[in-house]
């Protein structure tokens, strides 16, 4: 999956400035940067929840030119191949946990209900919530809700899972539950694109780091080098220091 020369403006504020990025399959790409830098907008563009004014999007054989009207069939293809996990979970409150997970497979992929339920139960077990299948989202903690959201996304068998600050709304303890699930997915070579402020986690999980600031990409490459102390990009060093990474070591 890749985007090339993408531009996006909100009003007269240009949030993405001619951005090109590729997201290698089977790897974990982590987008970091200050708030309002445009990293969430990049992520949401990958699921077509935001529509850039110009630029290109490529996913397998599918090619989308953002300056043209996007065909409904292409939107559906992208949405099937990518799954979004939101900061605020956005579970469906009128469905049980199990129904949240089976809704996509049954309604969009046309799976049989029994098959979808069997798989949903496996996925819930995988995220450690087998016993919550019949609960309603309102009864879950934030960490549980976010793990259901991850299971809901996994049920669609997306090539890429996109996570928009998945743990920003969580206490550190609950955050760990979610991060463990994500580390597990990364180990299984599930392609992930994660926007996060948690640099310790980014360092642990990322194959590739993208540093975004003011709608521009200041770093795009190997995660190890990004966090290396001898990184000669002063701006990145300042950012890392400001996030007081030292105190986490």
């Amino acid at each position: 999956m890749k985007i090339t020369k993408v531009n996006k403006t909100f009003g007269n504020h240009q949030v993405l400035k001619n951005i090109s990025l590729d997201f290698p399959a089977g790897k974990t790409t982590v987008l970091v940067g200050p708030s309002g830098s445009g990293k969430s907008t990049i992520l949401r563009s990958l699921d077509l929840l935001e529509r850039p004014e110009s630029g290109n999007f490529d996913l397998d054989e599918l090619h989308i030119d953002f300056s043209q009207k996007i065909k409904d069939a292409d939107i559906l293809t992208v949405r099937k191949k990518t799954g979004m996990v939101f900061q605020s979970y956005n579970l469906f409150p009128h469905f049980t946990v199990l129904q949240n997970v089976t809704e996509g497979p049954v309604q969009v992929l046309g799976k049989k209900k029994a098959d979808a339920e069997a798989e949903a139960k496996q996925l819930l077990a995988k995220v450690g919530l087998a016993d919550k299948a019949d609960f309603y989202p309102e009864t879950l903690s934030g960490g549980q809700a976010q793990r259901v959201a991850i299971a809901r996304s996994l049920a669609m068998h997306p090539e890429y899972i996109l996570l928009d600050e998945p743990t920003s709304a969580l206490d550190p303890e609950l955050e760990m539950e979610v991060l463990k699930v994500l580390l597990e997915l990364a180990k299984e070579k599930q392609s992930l694109v994660i926007v996060t402020h948690n640099l310790a986690f980014a360092r642990r999980v990322a194959d590739k780091i993208v540093f975004v600031e003011n709608g521009e990409i200041l770093y795009d490459g190997d995660a190890g080098k990004f966090f290396a102390q001898d990184n000669d990009n002063q701006r990145i060093q300042d950012f890392l220091n400001s996030m007081s990474l030292a105190s986490l070591d």
Binding site: D47, R79, K80, M84, F86, N90, E103, G104, Q107, M156
Partner: peptide
């Protein structure tokens, strides 16, 4: 909330189905 539309869209539901379901 608008986010409910987005969550439905992200699992591939179209507008009609999102409304109904």
């Amino acid at each position: 909330p608008r986010e409910q539309w987005e969550a439905a869209a992200s699992i591939g539901m179209n507008r009609g189905k999102t409304l109904r379901r």
